[in-house]
């Protein structure tokens, strides 16, 4: 396993900024629209996603190894989704037992993560890009961090939006998407960065 600093740096910056999961790959839009109403809940969701996605990246790496060795790669999707569902359930039970404070803080956001397409996508992308274990875990962690970043920025803007006078037609979802478009334009400025 070789560790090249510039490759790792490219993966990290690429995952957070250049190919931000929400704003340029369009993954995890549902929680992005649904949970970004308040800063507090979006922060909780962000943390939960970082936790689960990093674990997913780690576990699915080994699951994929087993699939490749036994030559049943076509079961990849099914195995990954079951692993994610099991992992979310496990994390939920573990937190409930050993860290009730964090558990109650994350609350309903944990079970919702199973159907967050960003989590399955990170597992599939790790395989597609052929990352080794360290690259896969780093990519998963920073992709999730990018998701959390976009979510928290969005929540900050939407809290301001509460006290502004939005035209009635654009209230709710439409104005959220317009803001997302502008954020996405801003994040496009990162493309072309090289190390």
């Amino acid at each position: 396993m070789k560790l090249d600093f510039s490759t790792l740096m490219t993966i990290i910056i690429g995952a957070i900024f250049i190919n931000n999961f929400v704003l340029s790959r369009f993954l995890g839009i549902c929680p992005f629209v649904g949970v970004s109403r308040s800063l507090e809940s979006s922060f909780g969701m962000g943390m939960a996603v970082i936790f689960v996605m990093t674990l997913t990246g780690f576990v699915t790496y080994f699951v994929n190894l087993i699939l490749v060795i036994t030559r049943v790669e076509y079961l990849q999707m099914m195995c990954f989704i079951i692993v994610i569902a099991a992992l979310v359930q496990f994390v939920e039970m573990f937190l409930q037992k050993f860290n009730p404070t964090l558990y109650s803080a994350l609350g309903i956001y944990l079970p919702l993560i199973t159907t967050n397409c960003a989590v399955l996508a990170v597992a599939l992308l790790n395989v597609k890009e052929g990352y080794n274990l360290i690259e896969a875990v780093l990519f998963s962690f920073f992709a999730a961090a990018g998701f959390a970043l976009a979510l928290v920025i969005m929540a900050g803007i939407r809290e301001r939006l509460e006290i502004t006078d939005v035209p009635r037609t654009m209230q709710g979802v439409p104005i959220t998407f317009i803001i997302a478009a502008i954020l996405s334009l801003a994040f496009m400025g990162f493309s072309g960065m090289k190390f």
């Binding site: 654009m170 439409p174 478009a181 996405s184």
Partner: peptide, 22 residues
């Protein structure tokens, strides 16, 4: 070009949903 880049998706959808609301 912006319409086939990521921001275009958000903008199109925003206006379609707004139109549907109206």
């Amino acid at each position: 070009l912006v319409m086939i880049l990521p921001p275009g998706g958000f903008i199109t959808l925003a206006f379609l949903i707004a139109g549907m609301n109206v």
